[in-house]
Design a protein around this nucleic acid. Structure first.
Lengths: 140, 140
DNA sequence: ACATACTTTAGAATAATTATAAAGTAGTTA
DNA sequence: TAACTACTTTATAATTATTCTAAAGTATGT
């Protein structure tokens, strides 16, 4: 990247703050993830196939995993586990909760759930975060 | 099993109600899981190695997976996902919540957490269950 | 432009889980 | 109880998600 146009600055900054040099592949991934209005839920496989679908020169699996991990460690992505033993990532990094509806994930804004009572952390420990999953089923 | 002694009835019943014939291997697994006072959290690998450790004739991996899956489908075990993409099972099938403390899982009794506010299910859907995970970190 | 450390990539390696198919066993029936 | 049939067990192969490796390529500081 000899010259980086300014419109990518925000995506490049996410990489830099994750300790990653802004290579072409990474900038494309960062744009793909963060250049959107709505929250985005994905697994690495899904990200890879949807990005590579439209590309002549494919980005390798390892690069997707590396980039997503670094972004996650830096706090630009949230990770959560699906039932089927795959990691799912969320571009919404604000504290929030989820509906799980047969494999589909829907965000719940943090203020939609409040607690009347929460247990104390065991001694020597403190609460890092609280995550709620509301599992849904069909109404009939 | 020509003759099944009565003291195993409860463990055999769990198998039968899961659609499984009470073979020797399955009865041993069922006993190992349910013949205890405290709740038991395990992955299939952990179950397998701890049971096979003390046996001359090992039970195969497939039998552990089959049996655990059937018990889970019948509702005798609860499944939840750990961060590291392995399925964890819980012999406590009552509705309850969990502390996650660096890979260690601790049950939280259902009545220790109550809600002041919960979102409505999207239309056409209803809430099947609500699960809370409280992640812990060290105090210092 | 150079040097160097960081990257990309294809492909191998691992780990968790599921599938296969041959040999064994439970439960039913006569 | 003998015999039959469908269900089981097992070792092993296959799959899936993910991580590792090492050779070839690239960003960045000087």
């Amino acid at each position: 990247m000899t010259k980086m146009n300014n419109k990518n600055k925000i995506f490049i900054d996410k990489l830099r703050s994750s300790g990653l040099r802004p290579t072409n592949q990474r900038v494309e991934i960062s744009k793909f993830l963060f250049n959107r209005k709505k929250t985005f839920h994905f697994t690495v496989e899904e990200l890879k196939s949807s990005m590579n679908l439209k590309r002549q020169k494919k980005i390798s699996t390892a690069t997707f995993y590396n980039t997503v991990h670094a972004l996650k460690s830096a706090g630009h992505l949230k990770e959560f586990s699906l039932e089927n033993n795959t990691s799912c990532y969320d571009t919404n990094i604000t504290s929030h909760h989820h509906f799980f509806d047969n494999g589909k994930v829907i965000d719940i804004k943090s203020d939609k759930i409040t607690f009347q009572k929460l247990p104390e952390a065991p001694k020597g420990k403190k609460i890092k975060n609280v995550e709620v999953v509301i599992r849904l089923e069909n109404n009939n």
